[in-house]
């Protein structure tokens, strides 16, 4: 039950921070998402984001910070066996599902629908 509370707090907190950045600076959503991916990767360098996921569950999985966390997680898992080559081999291990599904669904939806303004 506590996980729901933490999921609410963490996911809401991340969204609130990004909204504050968007409102108070001239950065666009593109800047903020890129920044948050880097922050997610940075937090996972020493396993901090893993602990957040443990406590916040899906609340920590769905923000874009988790994309950076999954990238470095896959890379480090393979790197622990193969050394530096592992970085290149494992970087997309955990995020390939998300990227490929997003590409495929975007492609077929673009064929089926017309843009609306």
């Amino acid at each position: 039950m506590e996980t729901y509370v933490y999921a609410f707090l963490f996911c809401g907190f991340v969204c609130m921070i990004s909204q504050l950045i968007l409102d108070n600076t001239k950065l666009t959503p593109g800047h903020v998402t890129s920044l948050f991916v880097v922050v997610g990767a940075m937090l996972d360098v020493f396993g901090i984001y893993d602990k957040i996921v443990l406590y916040c569950g899906a609340g920590a999985i769905i923000p874009i910070t988790s994309f950076g966390h999954l990238l470095i997680h896959g890379a480090m898992d393979v790197a622990s066996e193969n050394g530096f080559m592992g970085l290149a081999l494992g970087i997309f291990d955990l995020t390939s599902a998300g990227i490929s599904v997003a590409v495929v669904s975007a492609f077929f939806l673009a064929l089926l629908f017309k843009p609306r303004h």
Binding site: T3, Y4, A7, F8, L9, F10, C11, G12, F13, V14, C15, M16, S18, Q19, C56, G57, A58, G59, I61, I62, P63
Partner: peptide, 13 residues
């Protein structure tokens, strides 16, 4: 955005 993001977090949990 805090409330809506939090609700989205709960739903995905």
């Amino acid at each position: 955005s805090f409330l809506a993001g939090g609700v989205l977090g709960i739903l995905s949990e």
